[in-house]
Simulated assay, not measured.
Amino acid sequence: MRDTTLGGRLFRGAAVTLLVAFTALPLYWLLVSSLKPDSQLGDTSLIPTSITLANYGAAFDTLIPRWMLNTLGISLLTTVLGLAVAALAAFGFARYRFRGRTVLFALVLASLAIPEYATVIPQFTIMREIGLLNTWAAVVLPLAANALVLFLLRQYFSQLPEELFDAARLDGCGEFRVFWRVALPLVRPGLGAAGLLLFLNAWNAYLLPLVMLTDSSQFTMPVGLAFLHSQLNFSVVQQSPWGAITAGTVISTAPLLLCLLIMQRQFIKGLTTGAVKA
Rank of each mutant, 00 (worst) to 15 (best):
L6I: 13
L10Q: 04
R12P: 01
A14Y: 03
A14R: 01
A14V: 12
A15L: 15
L18H: 00
L19I: 09
V20E: 10
V20H: 01
A21K: 01
V32N: 01
S34D: 07
P37L: 04
S39I: 12
Q40C: 00
D43Q: 12
S50L: 05
T52C: 13
N55W: 04
Y56A: 07
D61K: 09
D61Q: 10
T62A: 07
P65H: 06
R66G: 07
L72R: 01
G73S: 09
L76A: 15
L81A: 15
G92Q: 11
R95A: 08
R97Y: 08
V103Q: 10
L104I: 09
V108G: 06
S111V: 02
L112A: 05
I114V: 15
A118V: 10
I121V: 13
T125V: 13
I126T: 04
G131M: 11
L132N: 00
T135Q: 06
W136Y: 15
W136G: 10
A137N: 03
L141F: 11
P142R: 00
A144Q: 03
N146S: 04
N146D: 14
L148R: 05
L153R: 07
F157P: 10
L160R: 04
E162A: 13
L164Y: 05
L164V: 02
F165E: 15
D166L: 12
D166F: 02
A168S: 14
R169C: 10
G172Q: 10
G172A: 10
G174N: 14
F176R: 05
R177L: 15
R177W: 12
R177V: 12
V182M: 11
R188Y: 11
L191A: 11
A193P: 00
A193R: 07
G195V: 12
G195H: 10
G195N: 08
L198W: 11
L198M: 13
F199Y: 12
N201H: 03
W203Y: 09
N204H: 06
A205Q: 12
L207V: 08
P209M: 02
D215R: 03
M221S: 02
M221T: 09
M221W: 08
P222G: 10
L225A: 09
F227H: 14
L228A: 08
L228F: 01
S230M: 11
N233A: 11
G243S: 01
A244L: 05
V250Y: 03
T253H: 01
L261F: 09
M263F: 15
M263R: 03
R265N: 12
K269M: 06
